[in-house]
Design a binder for these strands. Structure first.
Lengths: 192, 192
DNA sequence: GTATGAACAGACCGACAGTCGGTTTGTCAA
DNA sequence: TTGACAAACCGACTGTCGGTCTGTTCATAC
């Protein structure tokens, strides 16, 4: 059962790759299943064999985006021992990741609407928010209840800053200002 | 032309009121034009006479929600002279407003996706973000560039906190914690 | 009275997501 | 070698949806 499984895997991955491009360029609503089928040169039946629906295809795309962002973050903090320093590095890396159109459109704009806020945050909890809470707890001397709220505030704030950079006319200088603002925000949240 | 104009106005407002309920209960995607027509007992032609499309109907709904939230905010700060105190009161009022399911679903979840992040923020700029920036400038001694970023961070952070309250099991105690967290956040953002 | 145009009516259209009864094809046991 | 089996795939079809288009009604202006 190797040739068949491999072929299936290849089809699935190909669909995810093609869909990633289309979702990024035209958004979730602007991308029809039809167009994915055409671009991937795959039949309707094949797609619906691998994914129960359009939102499942989107979820699969989102998953690969998470993987990439997570890997970038892990690379940025590897070897660091000071929690505050690592947190800071991770935050700046995240802002830079969000410059990627894929991250912006798929993770920040479409994901909450497609999955619903609840499911979106639950997914985030498992992949990034959880780590962020641990990092905040280690890096600062905050009330545990406050840590939860501030983790959300920090993540939402960083996302907002990232979106501001994305729509700025001069993205290079905006990125400089944005990173300073992000670092400042982090400092303020961690202060006693 | 008074009877006709009045009748048109009434139809329009009736559509907005009915649509507000359906959008809140089922979200934008989950609400079909068909269902609005049925619930409002209005014909297709009538609806499309008043609104060029579904998103325009949504925009009209959003507008009335903004009006209500703005009025609540204005009432909360009336008579206050200290900018910092007024800002604080406005922020807490906003968190309480966001407990309203209409505000949550229409303003926080659907609006960015339906209008697109860019148009959403432009609308917000005119109605709330602009005032928030002025208030931040008056209340703290922040770098003007930083004020812009922090206004966005504050608004996004407050929204996130409001959403956390909304999905909490015990909303009453969550609201208490959330308001404390919001006040703390504001203090930290305003510090020199 | 008649012209005008805002308000409304509802049949109709194309596009879309999703379904369903098939067909192909790799695998494995007899 | 063969026949059963199931994963992978195919594409015609369906129901629903947002939006269009050709009228019809009727209050008002002249």
């Amino acid at each position: 059962m190797n040739k068949k499984i491999d072929r299936g895997q290849a089809t699935r991955e190909h669909l995810v790759a093609v869909a990633t491009g289309l979702f990024t360029e035209h958004g979730y609503d602007g991308t029809s299943i039809e167009s994915v089928l055409r671009a991937a040169e795959v039949s309707r039946g094949a797609l619906y064999h691998h994914f129960p629906g359009k939102d499942a295809l989107f979820a699969a795309v989102l998953d690969t985006v998470y993987d990439r962002v997570e890997a970038d973050g892990a690379k940025a903090v590897e070897g660091m021992t000071d929690p505050a320093e690592a947190l800071r590095a991770a935050c700046l890396t995240w802002i830079r990741s969000a410059a990627d159109p894929v991250v912006r459109q798929v993770m920040l704009i479409d994901a909450p609407a497609v999955l619903g806020w609840q499911r979106w945050r639950e997914g985030d909890e498992a992949r990034t928010l959880g780590k962020l809470k641990v990092a905040l707890r280690l890096a600062g001397r905050l009330d545990p209840v406050r840590v939860d709220y501030f983790a959300h505030v920090l993540l939402a704030g960083l996302n907002e800053i990232a979106m501001l950079v994305a729509r700025a006319d001069d993205r290079v200088s905006a990125a400089v200002e944005a990173e300073a603002a992000a670092a400042d925000l982090l400092d303020r949240l961690l202060r006693a």
